[in-house]
């Protein structure tokens, strides 16, 4: 249960929010003009990175407002929160938090206890 800083209400327990999956996935403007495969990609496929993830949250037990967040899924640390109409921060801003190619950080993933 981490904390999420709702841009409209302030910092609240994560259990007050619902996650909306990957952010910045645009619904196709003309669904009829794309192939079945492209449509399936939109409906069913989302990125699932271990590490930096641009995602959506909604303060469902609060103001009901949607917003975006950048979170490190290998530690659950929230690195940035921004409103829907704000420009997404550049990935370079968070690159330093990635530890290994597969995203396994030394600290915070829960997979190691002893310092090497």
């Amino acid at each position: 249960m981490f904390l999420i800083n709702c841009p409209y209400c302030g910092e609240r327990d994560q259990s007050e929010f619902s996650n909306g999956g990957e952010a910045h996935v645009k619904r196709p403007e003309n669904p009829d003009s794309i192939s079945d495969k492209e449509w399936a990609e939109y409906v069913f496929v989302r990125s699932n990175p271990k590490g930096i993830f641009y995602e959506r949250w909604v303060h469902s037990h609060g103001c009901r407002k949607w917003f975006n967040a950048v979170r490190n899924t290998s530690t659950d640390e929230i690195l940035k929160i921004y409103k829907l109409d704000e420009k997404p921060p550049s990935l370079d801003e968070f690159k330093h938090t990635l530890q290994t190619p597969s995203g396994e950080p030394e600290l915070g993933s829960g997979n190691f206890t002893v310092k090497k």
Binding site: M1, Q14, K50, F53, E55, S74, T75, D76, S109, G110
Partner: peptide, 13 residues
């Protein structure tokens, strides 16, 4: 939990 995570640690709730 209702969010993606690789931490092998979910919410206490």
């Amino acid at each position: 939990d209702g969010y993606n995570s690789f931490t092998q640690r979910g919410g206490y709730d």
